[in-house]
């Protein structure tokens, strides 16, 4: 009997916690189907339901809502960012993990410190460097901002590669394989979980950043924006009362692909950071 009470209690607590965690998300989804465009502060669920916000998102682009364009822009930026970042991260991680050369540890510490430096602090300098390269207001510039310094985020990937047995590489050496070949043929195939993690996490960066995007895409032409700035802009004082429920719809749409990737990534992330201590 006592056991049953505890069983029920345990699940009721979980249920309460889950409700607490999901309330804002439910509100997001509910509001995205609201017939009222502004913020409904009197009722949790909308008074009139409508699918119109989603139609506005995709079928009626105006200067405020250019969702399709934003989505495509962000997608293109994200794809290139993810390719470059992944390559950079793997190159640095392999170098730091498997190769031995003078100054390696110094470089590693230096890299970790630099990686802790938040980009927000130096954004003005970043802006003017891009400007002197003629890359402001261009998606190439955005890709550079998101991916150029990505090599600094090597730590997790390195931790993973550290767990790959050195005997594999030694065997390859004896057969006369070059370092490049070992990297390509042995280490990379074994690093699949961490590659997936790096790919997805770098893919997600452009979807969430609005600080740099806002600074660099400053022409005011809304079709050039990314999803993040576009949605952020809808909550401007003068727009929020007309666009809040469209903002919610936009939030829901962008969440769908991202949540799927996110869930996949989590699994590999856990493998990546626990790999080192477990397999050892």
């Amino acid at each position: 009997m006592k056991k049953q009470v505890r069983f029920v209690l345990r699940h009721v607590i979980l249920l309460l916690l889950a409700v607490f965690w999901l309330v804002p998300i439910v509100w997001l989804v509910a509001t995205s189907f609201s017939g009222y465009k502004g913020i409904n502060t009197a009722h949790f669920f909308p008074e009139t339901w409508s699918f119109d916000n989603y139609l506005a998102l995709f079928l009626r682009p105006d200067s405020v809502v250019q969702y399709k364009a934003w989505f495509m822009n962000t997608l293109v930026i994200a794809i290139f960012t993810c390719i470059i970042s992944t390559i950079f991260v793997l190159m640095v991680a392999y170098t730091m993990s498997c190769l031995r050369f003078k100054g390696r540890k110094g470089l590693m510490s230096f890299g970790i410190i630099l990686n802790m430096f938040p980009g927000v602090l130096s954004m003005i300098a970043v802006y003017f460097i891009l400007k002197s390269l003629g890359l402001t207001n261009s998606h190439v510039g955005m890709i550079i901002v998101y991916s150029a310094a990505s090599g600094l985020g090597y730590l997790i990937a390195k931790g993973f590669m550290d767990t790959i047995s050195i005997s594999l590489r030694e065997a390859a050496w004896l057969e006369g394989a070059s370092e490049a070949k070992i990297f390509w043929k042995i280490i990379l195939p074994l690093s699949k979980p961490i590659i997936v993690y790096t790919v997805i996490s770098s893919f997600l960066v452009p979807w969430g950043d609005f600080v740099f995007a806002k600074l660099i895409l400053n022409s005011g032409i809304s079709a050039d924006w990314t999803v993040a700035i576009g949605l952020y802009n809808m909550l401007n004082k003068s727009l929020i009362n007309k666009y809040f429920s469209i903002f919610c719809a936009g939030g829901v749409v962008v969440s769908i692909p991202i949540s799927i990737l996110f869930v996949i990534m989590q699994k590999f992330y856990v493998e990546g950071i626990t790999g080192g201590s477990v397999k050892g």
Partner: peptide, 23 residues
């Protein structure tokens, strides 16, 4: 002629960030 959107109340913030890049 390209038409961008920038609220009158925040125009200054965007313009002063980089005058040369402003409209």
């Amino acid at each position: 002629i390209k038409l961008g959107s920038e609220s009158e109340s925040t125009a200054k913030d965007t313009i002063l960030a980089d005058v040369e890049a402003a409209a």
